[in-house]
Each structure stands twice: as C-alpha cells, then as structure tokens.
Amino acid sequence: MTGIVKWFNADKGFGFITPDDGSKDVFVHFSAIQNDGYKSLDEGQKVSFTIESGAKGPAAGNVTSL
C-alpha cells in the first residue's frame, strides 16, 4: 500500500505514515526503511509499505520511497 509520511523523528528513529486509503495512521520504525545509508523519512514524503504485526499493534514494514 502507499501513503504519506505524517512525521518522522530521526533522533528517536520512528514516526507515522498516513495511508492513502484513509485508514488509521501506521507506526513506522527506522529498521523498516529499505534504503541504503541513513534510514530516515521526511514529512510529506510518498512511500510504499506493507502492514506488519508489531508488538504494540500494526506497524509499517518494507518501507520504500516513491
């Protein structure tokens, strides 16, 4: 699925993605970002991701920028 990064705190390594389908915002951890180098996201960035079952509920996985 796709969405827009609502916010991401690079110091803490997590944030939230707002899915394009209008569903509830999804937690994203830096370890789910699939790019080389520094793993961070920018507010407003368009991303593709999967929904994984995290310890505290749904979380984004396999996050790639579009």
Rank of each mutant, 00 (worst) to 15 (best):
residue 1 M to D: 04
residue 1 M to G: 07
residue 1 M to L: 12
residue 1 M to K: 11
residue 1 M to C: 11
residue 2 T to E: 06
residue 2 T to V: 09
residue 2 T to A: 05
residue 2 T to S: 09
residue 2 T to I: 10
residue 3 G to T: 00
residue 3 G to E: 00
residue 3 G to I: 01
residue 3 G to R: 00
residue 3 G to M: 00
residue 3 G to Y: 01
residue 3 G to Q: 00
residue 4 I to P: 01
residue 4 I to C: 14
residue 4 I to E: 06
residue 5 V to N: 01
residue 5 V to H: 00
residue 5 V to F: 02
residue 5 V to Q: 00
residue 6 K to A: 07
residue 6 K to D: 03
residue 6 K to S: 06
residue 7 W to Q: 03
residue 7 W to M: 05
residue 7 W to E: 02
residue 7 W to G: 02
residue 8 F to T: 02
residue 8 F to M: 02
residue 8 F to N: 00
residue 9 N to F: 07
residue 9 N to R: 10
residue 9 N to D: 15
residue 9 N to I: 05
residue 9 N to M: 06
residue 9 N to P: 02
residue 9 N to E: 05
residue 10 A to H: 14
residue 11 D to W: 14
residue 11 D to C: 15
residue 12 K to W: 13
residue 13 G to Y: 02
residue 13 G to M: 04
residue 14 F to P: 00
residue 15 G to Q: 00
residue 15 G to T: 00
residue 15 G to S: 01
residue 15 G to R: 00
residue 15 G to I: 01
residue 16 F to R: 03
residue 16 F to V: 06
residue 16 F to D: 00
residue 17 I to K: 00
residue 17 I to G: 00
residue 17 I to A: 01
residue 18 T to Q: 11
residue 18 T to P: 00
residue 18 T to A: 11
residue 18 T to W: 07
residue 18 T to E: 08
residue 19 P to L: 06
residue 19 P to M: 06
residue 19 P to Y: 06
residue 20 D to S: 10
residue 20 D to W: 06
residue 20 D to C: 15
residue 20 D to T: 08
residue 20 D to P: 03
residue 20 D to R: 05
residue 21 D to H: 07
residue 21 D to Q: 06
residue 21 D to S: 07
residue 22 G to V: 03
residue 22 G to Y: 06
residue 22 G to L: 06
residue 22 G to S: 06
residue 22 G to K: 07
residue 23 S to M: 07
residue 23 S to Q: 08
residue 23 S to N: 08
residue 23 S to R: 08
residue 23 S to F: 06
residue 23 S to I: 06
residue 24 K to S: 12
residue 24 K to G: 11
residue 25 D to V: 05
residue 25 D to R: 04
residue 25 D to L: 06
residue 25 D to H: 05
residue 26 V to W: 03
residue 26 V to T: 03
residue 26 V to N: 01
residue 26 V to E: 00
residue 26 V to A: 03
residue 27 F to C: 03
residue 27 F to N: 02
residue 28 V to F: 15
residue 28 V to P: 01
residue 28 V to C: 06
residue 28 V to K: 00
residue 28 V to L: 07
residue 28 V to G: 00
residue 29 H to C: 05
residue 29 H to E: 04
residue 29 H to L: 04
residue 30 F to L: 08
residue 30 F to N: 06
residue 30 F to K: 12
residue 30 F to R: 14
residue 30 F to A: 11
residue 30 F to W: 15
residue 31 S to P: 03
residue 31 S to F: 05
residue 31 S to D: 05
residue 33 I to W: 06
residue 33 I to D: 03
residue 33 I to T: 03
residue 33 I to M: 05
residue 33 I to V: 10
residue 33 I to S: 03
residue 34 Q to I: 14
residue 35 N to W: 11
residue 35 N to Q: 14
residue 35 N to I: 14
residue 35 N to K: 13
residue 35 N to Y: 11
residue 35 N to P: 07
residue 36 D to N: 11
residue 36 D to A: 13
residue 37 G to T: 10
residue 37 G to A: 09
residue 37 G to I: 09
residue 37 G to S: 09
residue 37 G to Q: 10
residue 37 G to D: 09
residue 38 Y to I: 12
residue 38 Y to Q: 12
residue 38 Y to R: 12
residue 39 K to D: 05
residue 39 K to W: 08
residue 39 K to N: 07
residue 39 K to Y: 08
residue 39 K to H: 09
residue 39 K to R: 11
residue 40 S to T: 14
residue 40 S to L: 11
residue 41 L to A: 02
residue 41 L to E: 01
residue 41 L to N: 01
residue 41 L to R: 01
residue 42 D to Q: 14
residue 42 D to K: 15
residue 43 E to M: 15
residue 43 E to Y: 13
residue 43 E to N: 13
residue 43 E to Q: 14
residue 44 G to A: 05
residue 44 G to C: 09
residue 44 G to P: 01
residue 44 G to F: 05
residue 45 Q to C: 07
residue 45 Q to F: 05
residue 46 K to M: 09
residue 46 K to T: 08
residue 46 K to G: 06
residue 47 V to M: 02
residue 47 V to G: 00
residue 47 V to D: 00
residue 48 S to L: 11
residue 48 S to H: 13
residue 49 F to S: 00
residue 49 F to L: 04
residue 49 F to M: 04
residue 49 F to V: 01
residue 49 F to W: 02
residue 50 T to Y: 09
residue 50 T to P: 01
residue 50 T to W: 09
residue 50 T to S: 11
residue 50 T to V: 12
residue 51 I to D: 02
residue 51 I to P: 05
residue 51 I to G: 03
residue 51 I to L: 12
residue 52 E to T: 13
residue 52 E to P: 03
residue 52 E to L: 13
residue 52 E to D: 10
residue 53 S to I: 15
residue 53 S to H: 14
residue 53 S to W: 15
residue 53 S to T: 14
residue 53 S to Q: 15
residue 53 S to Y: 15
residue 54 G to Y: 11
residue 54 G to A: 10
residue 54 G to K: 09
residue 54 G to R: 10
residue 54 G to I: 05
residue 54 G to P: 04
residue 55 A to R: 13
residue 55 A to T: 12
residue 55 A to V: 13
residue 56 K to S: 11
residue 56 K to V: 08
residue 56 K to L: 11
residue 56 K to E: 07
residue 57 G to W: 08
residue 57 G to L: 06
residue 57 G to V: 05
residue 57 G to Q: 06
residue 57 G to C: 07
residue 57 G to N: 07
residue 57 G to M: 06
residue 57 G to Y: 08
residue 58 P to C: 09
residue 58 P to Q: 10
residue 58 P to W: 08
residue 58 P to F: 12
residue 59 A to C: 15
residue 59 A to W: 12
residue 59 A to F: 15
residue 60 A to G: 04
residue 60 A to I: 03
residue 60 A to W: 02
residue 60 A to M: 02
residue 60 A to Q: 01
residue 60 A to E: 01
residue 61 G to H: 15
residue 61 G to N: 13
residue 61 G to D: 07
residue 62 N to H: 10
residue 62 N to G: 08
residue 62 N to K: 11
residue 62 N to M: 12
residue 62 N to P: 02
residue 63 V to W: 00
residue 63 V to Q: 01
residue 63 V to L: 05
residue 64 T to K: 14
residue 64 T to N: 11
residue 65 S to Y: 13
residue 65 S to T: 14
residue 66 L to H: 09
residue 66 L to T: 10
residue 66 L to D: 07
residue 66 L to M: 13
